[in-house]
Nucleic acid binder design. Structure first.
Lengths: 103, 103
DNA sequence: AGGTTGTGTCGATACTTGTCGATATAGGTC
DNA sequence: GACCTATATCGACAAGTATCGACACAACCT
């Protein structure tokens, strides 16, 4: 990538791409969801677990992980009738874009 | 802090605080603005410079830096009739909250 | 096949936010 | 004082989005 906010002014395209990832992270429900997945011992979490841990309706619970998948923060795999989520590279990309390692 | 999304599930308060900072970053105009400030040789930028570099109206240009200041990403200092912006600690906080150094 | 269960999608609604024109404020100059 | 200039604020509108109830679909079980 090598386009981080600390090395050079972002052009419009770069800023829009990064903003989209950040927007997917900038929600309390999705952050809690992300931290649940990121700290799972097995590295992955079944969608059914979210229902018990986040006090939201099922459509809402279904909506948020798909936003994170679309942004590349999580990845989704269907196993039988269960959906399993695990971390993707998107989070590292965001940290790098925000200047990880330059501070 | 020691509350990063990779070490333990966030509680509601933590997720709301982090989401607020991320929301302030999740906008293309503000990201370009941030990168302009972050890459300035002197470490600070006059608000008047934004008007030439971001194609937005003056009220909009004024709105965005104040959002970043409120979130602790930038700091603002008035010198005469000019407003000068420089980086604050908020950006490092965000990177740490996203798991900098744990990946 | 029929029933159950997990999960995504649709439609509606309420809330938030980015944007701009108009106006206000505050510092500088004459 | 009167004027100009740099920023912030206000009011309004448009666009986006978080949420939910209702429904659809697909995988399992008997």
């Amino acid at each position: 990538m090598s386009c981080c906010v600390l090395t050079a002014p972002l052009n419009i395209k770069q800023s829009e791409r990064l903003a989209e990832k950040l927007k997917s992270l900038a929600d309390p429900v999705r952050l809690r969801l992300l931290s649940i997945v990121a700290t799972a011992h097995t590295g992955e979490v079944c969608a059914c677990d979210f229902l018990g841990k986040l006090e939201k309706s099922q459509p809402t619970i279904s909506h948020h992980p798909s936003q994170l998948v679309k942004a590349g923060i999580l990845s989704r795999k269907q196993r039988g009738k269960w959906a399993w989520y695990r971390l993707a590279d998107g989070l590292c990309d965001v940290r790098e874009a925000l200047g990880e390692g330059c501070c």
